[in-house]
């Protein structure tokens, strides 16, 4: 097992700042914008993006979380997953632009589940997707709107995203399984 660091703390911070600006640019401001992070690390990233957007626009912005466990298509293939709480900002998502935030975009199945979950909560005007890392290997017709880093990878490799709030440091690394 060998680990290769692909993003350092400064790279992650830069990527999130760029994503925040891109979100504001394409949305023409922060009006009617709802950031929803997908647990666990997507929630932390959504919080950070909300912080950066608040700084840029000068008006406070709050991020929510969207748990997709109940909507997954692979529940029967794994030991029982413990769901995480869903927190939707009080203003709701009806008619808003929802930005889903996840750490790694891979098969696209988590996002499919997230779209179903959103469907049960309300009817946003549009749903966009931001991911810190896009590692490819999509199994569904889903693509991100905002990407921190494109990281072509082999399916045998593992992408590790570590964030200071949870893991003590900001770091993205690739572990290639020694065969």
């Amino acid at each position: 097992m060998s680990a290769r660091v692909v993003l350092q703390q400064a790279d992650i911070a830069r990527a999130l700042t760029r994503i925040s600006h891109e979100i504001l640019e394409s949305n023409r401001g922060a009006d009617d914008l709802v950031l929803l992070g997908i647990p666990t690390r997507g929630v932390l990233l959504a919080d950070r993006i909300a912080g950066i957007i608040s700084e840029i626009t000068g008006t406070p912005m709050e991020a929510g979380s969207l748990d997709v466990t109940m909507y997954r298509d692979d529940l029967a293939k794994h030991p029982t997953r413990t769901p995480a709480p869903t927190r939707i900002p009080a203003s709701g998502i009806d008619g808003k632009t929802v930005i889903l935030v996840d750490d790694v975009l891979y098969s696209g199945r988590t996002i499919r589940a997230a779209l179903d979950a959103i469907n049960d909560i309300g009817r946003p005007r549009a749903v966009r997707l931001a991911a810190l890392v896009d590692r490819g290997h999509r199994e569904l017709p889903i693509r991100p709107d905002y990407v921190g880093k494109n990281l072509p990878s082999a399916q045998t490799e593992r992408i590790n995203v570590r964030l200071a709030e949870l893991d003590g440091a900001d770091l993205v690394s690739i572990d290639s399984a020694a065969s």
């Binding site: 529940l75 029967a76 293939k77 794994h78 029982t80």
Partner: peptide, 9 residues
């Protein structure tokens, strides 16, 4: 029901 039925049984 979720804990009993959802995972790999």
């Amino acid at each position: 029901l979720y804990l009993l039925l959802s995972g790999d049984r």
